[in-house]
Amino acid sequence: MTAILPAKSVADRLTTLFWRKPKLLLILLITPPLLWLGVVYLGSLAALLMQSFYSIDEFSGMVIPEFTLKTYAELLRPQNYDVIFRTLLMSAAVTLGCAILGFPIAYYAARFARGRWKAVFYLGIMLPLWSSYLVKVYAWKLILAKEGIITWAAEATHTSGILNAILSLPGIGGGSLSTSYIGMFLVFVYVWLPYMILPMQASLERVPTSMLEASADLGATRAQTFRTVILPLALPGVIAGSIFTFSLTMGDYIIPQIVGNSANFIGMAVYQLQGTAGNIPLAAAFAVIPILIMLVYLWIAKRMGAFDAL
């Protein structure tokens, strides 16, 4: 037998070619997905950016394909400015709500859940993350309705007074939960909560038990260990989660449409401007805002080390 076996088939020859030129295989592998993402996705983003520099003829409603900053100037009108401000405020509130509500779940799942309970928590967080977004929103429409389960529960426990007091709060109250900012906030927190829990849990799981023991060993009380060791180490996870909750709230247009007092949000503005109003340039300009905000947000998050928790 010789030291070199003969190349018998086309497959053998191709393998030899890939071995001699490893870059060739890499290029063959990566070209189709890169073409797709490059053309379909980046191309579309470029189109969006281009459209945002066009303007619309106010009489004919036709898009004028000429470069102008007029559309961006329109964003600064008070009613548009309000939309942006309201969206950011809601995004921040939802992020905070998710962090507070999610922390105990993430902390328990990461530190105390073992065996079967670990699986329960894992599935318990993952299933709502993936299950139908629209169905979840719909479920809340049922819950928050004036004739729905919350009103019923309040009556059954004789706490309708408290519910009405909450609903009569100025600014965030409303006729019923489903037509108030409180209701909208609740739904937002509900649908994005798993996105906050998972990175938080991941970063908490990376805190070694020995470090907590060391802290206790050095005389820290449980509360001190929590405040000085666990919280700072969980922070990158919270920031990573906040990227999702903030970004998703900012771009959502379904929830403000279904729950709430029909106040406008960025996502809704984009949807309505491109649809019924037919003002695609202004819709595009509106859509650029979340991109810019998220770029700044990601830059800050990266500096704070949040990407290690993803």
């Binding site: 037998m1 010789t2 030291a3 076996l5 003969p6 030899t16």
Partner: peptide
């Protein structure tokens, strides 16, 4: 054959295998 020489020749039983991929080397 999982590395290729930058320079020089490798022979196995007198045959130069520098251009032979791993799966065809005995």
């Amino acid at each position: 054959g999982f590395e290729s020489p930058t320079a020089g020749e490798i022979c196995i039983f007198g045959e130069n295998v520098s251009n032979t991929p791993p799966h065809l080397r005995n």
